[in-house]
Design a protein around this nucleic acid. Structure first.
Lengths: 232, 232
DNA sequence: CTATTATTAGAGTATATACTCTAGGCAGTC
DNA sequence: GACTGCCTAGAGTATATACTCTAATAATAG
């Protein structure tokens, strides 16, 4: 593999594991056992590495969110979209963690990310439209649909942050793809009230597959205890 | 005012304006025209400053989210909760921006924040319960209610990040409390399907007050254009 | 007034970080 | 075998950052 690609791969890996803020260019070089000079031969600065990685991410999600023009969507389509989006989120999970700082330090990234968000929102919106076409959800007014899409986006992009901040008892305990995908449960919760009677049961079954298991159950216990004891 | 309090106040102000990551202890001292030594006389390290600020935040939100035991909730109560929570979010807005890093670098903070989140989730859950009691929303099964509460939490805590990353065209354009409170529109969107017929209209009117106006409207235009042009 | 304690200044430091610069190796080509 | 273009090593640097140390000044108690 080309050095350039190795740099991108290692950077992504290290960023995901320990956060962009905690990884310096020297770390990346050391991890690859190459010199800093070598790294800077391939990338002008750290921002450029991140920008490159973002563009991969963007491409991946755009590829996933390609929505057929000619037909309504099935439940399998919906599952595919949800699974794919969370897979993408997982692979590039460092990105949303330091998003604001990253956008502040790279105007290109800010611009691109803005457009990326808008494309995603539009895609979610169209998915809702096509789910209605497929008879899975009842058609909703334009205005409500776009507000719903935005809520779906908020839940999707921030589910991981929730897990990492509220869920994990310590910094070390790193989360799994399975836990991340429990976000699908939350997204489907958003859609429940809009399901057509014919599909309601089937979506409930699908949703059940992603229901949080043990870890969150423990969390619930803690919560109850805390409330009982700490109510003022 | 005591130097200690001035440090806390200035820190909060600078963190909110420019992000914790961009503000050093030397910045804070310089801003107050005191020496670094003086700052470190009052606080052992930067983490301690942040921890203190968090505790203020915690106290504020806990105070806001004190839910009456003896009665159902009115629409005025709901408005108060929503307004208050977004006010709190606004005053301590730096906090959620670098949340993951902050929790990683201070175990006390991680523990406290975890419990804080659980208290908030429990409060949202109880609000839903009391809204049902007040005849505003239809009662829902325990399980659905807690998943809904979690979604409300996700939308509330991440609405600002959305505005700052997807909405603002550049880093400088700082957002306003008014824009932030348009998050209430999103939260009420979540609740729409569960409203009782008697209250539905009134909540829709309330929601309308928070509807995003100009800025997001512009955003919509951009979005549409981008989709039309960039669809692959 | 004196002794003690609380507060402050300000120079200084160890470490980290992003990045540069120079010299050289290596593969292919004429 | 010399030339060329790509790649790499590694020492080095300017700046920043969190924090320390000492000495001096204000505040307070007896």
């Amino acid at each position: 593999m080309k050095t350039r690609d190795k740099i991108l791969l290692s950077s992504l890996e290290l960023f995901n594991e320990r956060g962009e803020r905690n990884i310096t260019t020297n770390h990346i070089a050391a991890h690859l056992a190459i010199s800093p000079g070598n790294l800077y031969y391939h990338f002008r600065n750290k921002s450029d590495i991140i920008y490159d990685i973002f563009q991969e991410y963007e491409k991946l999600v755009d590829y996933y969110l390609d929505i057929p023009e000619d037909r309504g969507l099935t439940l399998e389509d919906l599952t595919f979209y949800l699974e794919s989006v969370f897979d993408g989120l997982w692979s590039y999970r460092f990105f949303h963690r330091d998003l604001e700082y990253l956008l502040d330090s790279d105007p290109r990234l800010r611009q691109d990310y803005r457009e990326f968000t808008n494309r995603c929102l539009a895609a979610i919106d169209r998915i809702f439209g096509k789910l209605a076409e497929g008879g899975i959800i009842a058609p909703q007014p334009e205005e409500l649909r776009s507000a719903m899409s935005l809520n779906v986006w908020l839940v999707i992009t921030n589910w991981m942050a929730f897990l990492k901040t509220a869920h994990a008892a310590d910094a070390q305990s790193n989360l799994t793809l399975t836990e991340l995908k429990q976000g699908i449960y939350q997204v489907l919760t958003l859609e429940l009230p809009y399901l057509t009677p014919e599909y309601r049961e089937r979506v409930l079954v699908l949703r059940e597959k992603y229901r949080p298991t043990l870890p969150v159950a423990q969390d619930q216990v803690v919560r109850q205890a805390s409330v009982a004891g700490g109510a003022r």
